[in-house]
């Protein structure tokens, strides 16, 4: 039971932060299929930073780890500018742009990782090794039955993610900027009439999605394999997209969707382990979160509605 909660959270929270990024972008009216590419590029920049700087820090230094998150965030944001430029300035179809960003991200990071490894570090390898991110336990709270597992053996980045989610929730729903952002996705002409630059708001929203996806990507790089390799492109971005659509483009329901995902996944693993089934059964068990999601959608998606102006290029002349 404890393991279900511990593993479930460490999978659900990174997906959630990526999904929040997606919500920002999509609520502002920019379809964001690029989350997968953004998280990969973020993780790449973080990984590159660690590989370059690890000589100057003590092994497994927490400063380096937190700095790598900052760099991943910046890297993701910079890369997402490409998506923003294509969608806003160059009037590209947003679906096309998203797919292009993903393909390009896999190509660029794969190419640069092996190129830098050979020419800078002189060893042919397709990954950057990261230090192990220690899990921590809060002494008192972790003793509470069942719920205590939330405070046990968690990665420090999970705290960061929760703080960020709260901040993002506040910005989106309680500040003027958040209101403008949401209005841009539903009625951009009205926003323009109110004297606010639609394209600027959308640009910032896409930057948010890049930065948040970068953090999510870095989390996966640490938690799955403690290195950056092309294995980080394992479909987390697409999962985040489905979570945010499941959550009807709202932060709290999306959070719930991510938790269902995470717990169903770790729960299924534990069941296989507990019943001492062979490892090939874990493949069957892995379908549970996805089947569960589909079933839940059958009941809960009747009233789902995308932001009205989602995917449309803003055209001043249109009414």
């Amino acid at each position: 039971m404890e393991t279900i909660i511990i593993d479930g959270l460490s999978f659900a929270l990174p997906i959630m932060i990526i999904a929040v990024g997606g919500i920002y972008s999509e609520r502002s009216g920019i379809t964001n299929l690029a989350l997968e590419g953004l998280l990969g590029f973020g993780a790449f920049s973080g990984g590159l930073f660690v590989a370059l700087m690890s000589g100057y820090f003590a092994p497994a230094s927490p400063t380096l780890i937190w700095l790598s998150f900052l760099i991943a965030m910046i890297g993701g944001a910079i890369y997402s500018m490409l998506h923003a430029l294509l969608c806003i300035k160059f009037q590209a179809n947003q679906v096309i742009s998203g797919v292009v960003i993903n393909i390009l991200s896999v190509a660029i990071t794969g190419f640069l990782t092996s190129q830098i490894n050979t020419s800078v570090f002189g060893k042919p390898s397709d990954k950057f090794v990261l230090s192990v991110f220690q899990r921590i336990t809060i002494p008192g709270l972790s003793k509470i039955p069942v719920i205590g597992a939330v405070f046990k053996d968690f990665y420090p980045f999970e705290v960061l993610i929760i703080v960020l989610i709260i901040i993002c929730w506040y910005i989106l729903y309680c500040t003027p900027f958040g209101m403008h952002l949401r209005a841009c996705g539903d009625n951009p002409q009205a926003v323009d009439t109110a004297g606010i630059n639609v394209n600027k708001v959308r640009f910032i929203a896409v930057l948010f999605s890049g930065a948040l996806s970068g953090i999510g990507g870095m989390c996966f790089a640490y938690s799955i394999s403690t290195n950056f390799s092309p294995a980080v492109y394992m479909g987390a971005g697409y999962l985040a997209i489905s979570a945010l659509i499941f959550g009807n483009w709202k932060i709290m329901p999306t959070f719930l969707a991510c938790l269902i995902f995470g717990f169903a996944r770790s729960g299924a693993y534990q069941v296989v382990k507990y019943m001492k089934l062979s490892s090939s059964f874990s493949d069957l068990a892995m379908t549970i979160p996805y089947i569960l999601t589909l079933l839940l959608l059958v009941f809960f998606s009747k009233n789902n509605r995308a932001p009205r102006a989602l995917g449309e290029i803003y055209d001043k002349g249109k009414r």
Binding site: Y290, L294, K302
Partner: peptide, 27 residues
């Protein structure tokens, strides 16, 4: 059908089906 009957966004259902097929067939 899922889109028509239950208003399930086709992107979500096809991503879910991708994973379901992948794991079941792998088994």
């Amino acid at each position: 059908f899922l889109k028509y009957k239950f208003n399930i966004n086709e992107v979500v259902s096809s991503i879910m089906l991708n994973y379901i097929f992948q794991y079941i067939i792998s088994y």
